[in-house]
């Protein structure tokens, strides 16, 4: 390992900027975010970068390192060739605010379009009156029934709920990155979010029309770029997008089902 790392970091805003070279000392186990922090401490306190947990849990420090989308806090310096510059840029699919910080507010607007979790009425058979009276003497301010579902049912949506909203999937999705269809398309992050609601064992909402019409699920042609970059290893394409596409097809494009719905509207 070299004793010094050479960094080329984007400095500027959305209109103009340049790559600036910095040299910082390397420590064992150092990650790219440490190097960026060293630049702040040694040369440039005004270098803008987002970060929080520094352990891959919050999804704040997304960037492009040598052209690859990364969480900078999980990106080890020692995997890059010693002595060669490491090039650090902000993620491309969103406007640069300053340096490595981008304007990701679009994602928050998309999220708001998705109707929230809607609890199923819990059937009386599922109520567990015994458990209520037996153990806890805690004060209750609502007469909620206790919903039950298995760990296997939980597993299915817990995978989606691991998402840390780093937006690396949004960043690499060509529908956004190359075709800039931000107005018509929700992006992989929000297909995962819709899937986490649609497959939730206690949810009774319906978001299929939304995902088809407003979030433009049809634009996705399953190139799996999102799945490849997901730092949480969520099977975005196989477990979220494809099942949603199947549900959309079943609902809106299956001629037999369509006919059945006309004949038996309440079925």
């Amino acid at each position: 390992m070299a004793e010094e790392a050479i960094l080329h970091i984007y400095r500027g805003n959305n209109d103009k900027g340049e790559m600036v070279e910095y040299r910082v000392p390397v420590q064992p186990g150092m990650v790219v975010l440490d190097a960026v922090h060293a630049v702040q401490a040694m040369y440039s306190p005004d270098l803008a970068v987002r970060w929080n947990c520094k352990a891959g849990k919050c999804g704040s420090c997304s960037g492009e390192v040598n052209g690859k989308p990364r969480l900078m806090c999980m990106d080890r310096m020692d995997k890059y060739p010693a002595g060669e510059p490491i090039v650090i840029r902000p993620i491309k699919s969103f406007p640069v605010m300053k340096d490595l910080a981008t304007d990701v507010s679009w994602n928050y607007r998309v999220n708001k379009k998705i109707p929230p979790f809607q609890m199923k009425p819990v059937a009386t058979s599922l109520r567990d009156a015994d458990a209520k009276s037996a153990g806890s003497e805690s004060r209750r301010d609502s007469a909620t029934a206790e919903p039950r579902f298995s760990q296997e049912e939980a597993d299915r949506v817990q995978e989606f709920r691991k998402c840390i909203e780093c937006y690396l999937c949004q960043n690499v999705c060509h529908v956004l990155r190359d075709h800039e269809k931000h107005e018509e398309f929700g992006g992989p992050r929000f297909f995962v979010r819709v899937a986490s609601l649609e497959m939730h064992p206690l949810d009774c909402g319906d978001r299929l029309e939304l995902v088809k019409d407003q979030l433009g699920l049809g634009f996705c042609n399953i190139t799996r770029c999102c799945t490849e970059v997901c730092p949480e290893h969520i099977h975005i394409t196989d477990n979220a997008i494809i099942p949603l596409k199947e549900r959309v097809v079943d609902r809106f494009y299956d001629p037999i089902k369509k006919l059945l719905r006309i004949v038996f509207p309440k079925a």
Partner: peptide, 28 residues
Amino acid sequence: HAQEAPDRVRELESWGAVFDRTKDGRIL
């Protein structure tokens, strides 16, 4: 805190949180 925490957990579940489950399907 001790009295109200159970209701706050159940409330979180009613807002969509998915906790790990016991074998009989309750919050582990």
